[in-house]
């Protein structure tokens, strides 16, 4: 009896037998390799001469030739700028439009709230397939096809419901007592929201903005259909011109991928903790 009870208590919780430890590390190493390898391979390929892009050597005549080609002979920076413009404006507008709604549905019970929540949920699951044709025709009539503004408006169909939904989750985490203290101080609901709640919700706003930014940043379908001509493409469209049915310029393609991925990855690494906290706040309360 003593033997069986003392065995677990000899080790503290969270400690493992050496065998379990090896298994844990082995599994995690395998998973990490799978997670990292494709990205690493792209990085390595971008440093090979373009004609050796399909070589299987890990390193072969390292050169920055692909990057130079990308900078000098393609519109990479134009695409990059278009993507930043479109995703940035979409994010700012999305957060701005949706903030008060997130607050209202988090705090008040009002007629129309349930259908609104329902609409927000359903619009988030809207397949682009239903909106793409009407939006395409609409943009065509307004002369906004092939314009960043047209793409921004289109992306707001994704960003607004998403931001409202997510921010509701964040506002839910802020104690109601704060609203009450505002009311006691004679603030109306708008004042309470603007002066008291919004400053507290700043991390939440940042996380919402971030997700909304990367969604717009990585969008492919609308960008492929609406934007044409080298000067108007976003990155998603621009990269497609490297690898088409008849061409496969893997060299510049991989170099462009690296240049796009690095800022995003660095940001992720630093912001990770916030994102995790923010996501779960949004998720558990959503």
């Amino acid at each position: 009896m003593t033997a069986t009870t003392s065995a677990p208590s000899a080790r503290k919780r969270g400690e493992r037998s050496p065998l379990a430890s090896v298994a844990l590390h082995a599994t995690l190493i395998a998973a990490s390799v799978i997670a990292v390898f494709p990205v690493l391979w792209v990085l390595l390929t971008s440093l090979k001469p373009a004609k050796d892009a399909i070589s299987t050597d890990f390193v072969k005549d390292p050169t920055l030739e692909n990057y130079r080609y990308l900078v000098e002979s393609t519109s990479f920076f134009t695409w990059f700028g278009n993507s930043v413009l479109v995703a940035g404006v979409t994010t700012v507008l999305g957060v701005f439009i949706a903030a008060t709604t997130g607050y209202a549905v988090s705090r008040f019970k009002f007629p129309g709230m349930r259908p609104l929540m329902w609409t927000l949920l359903v619009t988030q699951m809207f397949p682009m397939a239903i909106l793409i044709v009407p939006l395409y025709n609409l943009m065509g009539q307004l002369g906004l096809l092939n314009q960043p503004l047209g793409l921004i408006i289109t992306y707001l169909t994704i960003a607004v419901p998403f931001c409202a939904w997510m921010m509701k989750g964040f506002f839910d985490t802020i104690p109601v007592e704060i609203d009450e203290s505002g009311r006691v101080d004679g603030l109306n609901p708008f004042g309470t929201f603007w002066r008291l709640i919004l400053p507290l919700a700043r991390p939440g706003l940042a996380v919402t903005a971030f997700y909304s930014f990367i969604t717009a940043w990585g969008e492919v379908a609308y960008a492929s259909a609406f934007m044409v001509g080298d000067d108007n493409l976003t990155l998603a469209g621009g990269l497609q011109t490297f690898v088409t049915q008849y061409t496969a310029n893997w060299g510049p393609m991989t170099a462009a991928s690296v240049l796009i991925a690095i800022p995003a990855a660095i940001f992720f690494v630093f912001a990770q903790r916030h994102l995790v906290a923010g996501m779960t706040a949004g998720a558990t309360k959503g």
């Binding site: 065509g140 096809l145 092939n146 609406f226 044409v228 001509g229 080298d230 088409t244 008849y246």
Partner: peptide, 24 residues
């Protein structure tokens, strides 16, 4: 001069022609 990859060109030309904006 703008080079449009052949594989996408029919589509892109149509998009540009129907919108008129920045059309070739």
């Amino acid at each position: 001069y703008v080079n449009v990859p052949y594989g996408d060109a029919q589509n892109k030309v149509k998009n540009a022609f129907s919108s008129g904006a920045d059309a070739p």
